Simulated scan of single mutants.
Amino acid sequence: MFVLRFWWPLAILSCSSALIEIPADYLTAIRQDRADEDAAGDYNYDHQGADWTGTCDTGQRQSPIDLIFSDSTLSSIPRIRFNNYNQSLRTPLVLTNNGHTANMVLPLTRGGQRPYINGGLLPGDFEVQSVHFHWGSRSSKGSEHAINFVRYDVEMHIVHKNRRYESMGEATQQPDGLAVLGVMFRAVPRSRPNSQLYGLNKIFNQVPRIVEYNSNVTISGQLNVGQLLGDVVTGEFYTYNGSLTTPDCAESVTWTVFSDILDFPERQIAKLWTLKDSRSRPLINNYRDIQDTNGRPVYYRALQKL
């Protein structure tokens, strides 16, 4: 593995002046992710996306939506298959406050593979790219999707790119370009056993170090993508064709939202409420309002009985 030893350029990511080692391909991916974020333009959540223009305003397959069991088609579609999700990622990982969310680009595994998913409604193999979160505030829920008219405290998105496309930029322009896994968090007063929430706790324990816009922190040690799912039952989910929930709201996403809810300590979730956006304002309620389904089919996969 070629390793680049460098000082973080402040124009890209503000960081303490510590000498760290980052694989060159991971550094390139972080820079590209930031470039993609900048290309979306200047936007905020002051009106939960109601003032966003372009496809966000005129699109017919927009996300998020309310996922309603009684309006869904019960289907025997395949379960989601998680490939290399149990393989440790190269570390250190980099968690960033990009002004809109806490975001982490996900690198290759230590064995050099890219974790990927298939199955469900997915038209091919989709490689993991990043993970980020949407949340509310002390007095409001912050998930983007609702399930049976209920919104939850946090929604985690694990973003994937169709293997057939070279870059996220290219994939975003294709109707089969992206796949996002959605996981709902419900705030609970007490912690679960660390073994069940190990991966998420490693991330949330570092959130206080990225309060300021454009700041980042490294996460070392063992972590695999599967650990981000905690003990969520992945055999039951809603799935539909929709869009990114941030500008430019490209209609390129196959959504898979698990109906099982992950209980997560409120003390961890509260750390997100301390983050600041690019205007030095509290980064809270960073969710988009529910969008019309416009007659789109929504499928529900239940656990298969033996």
Rank of each mutant, 00 (worst) to 15 (best):
P123E: 11
Y85M: 00
L89I: 06
S76Q: 13
S70W: 11
I77S: 02
T96D: 15
N97E: 11
G49C: 07
N103A: 08
N103H: 12
T96Y: 12
V105E: 10
I80P: 04
I65F: 07
L67F: 07
N118E: 04
V105D: 13
I77Q: 01
P64Q: 06
L74C: 14
P107Y: 04
Y85F: 13
S75D: 01
Q60W: 13
P64I: 04
Y85W: 11
S72N: 00
I117H: 01
A102F: 05
T101Q: 11
N86Q: 15
T91L: 01
I68Q: 10
I77W: 02
L67C: 03
D66Y: 04
S76R: 08
L93E: 00
N118K: 02
N84Y: 13
L74K: 15
I65T: 00
Q113W: 05
H100K: 02
T96K: 13
A50T: 15
S63C: 05
P64L: 05
V105K: 14
A102P: 07
N98F: 07
N84M: 09
G119T: 02
G49M: 07
L67T: 11
P123G: 01
L122S: 03
L67G: 05
N98H: 07
I117N: 02
N98P: 09
N103R: 14
D57A: 15
N84D: 09
S63R: 06
D51K: 13
D57Y: 15
F69C: 07
Q87R: 14
G54L: 11
F69M: 15
N84S: 07
G119V: 03
R79K: 05
R81M: 03
R110Q: 15
G112L: 11
I117G: 07
R90G: 02
T53N: 05
D51G: 11
R114T: 14
T91C: 10
R90A: 12
T53F: 08
H100W: 06
L89D: 05
L95Y: 09
R110C: 14
P115L: 09
Q113I: 04
S76G: 10
R61H: 13
L89Y: 04
T96V: 13
T109R: 05
C56K: 03
S63G: 06
I68T: 14
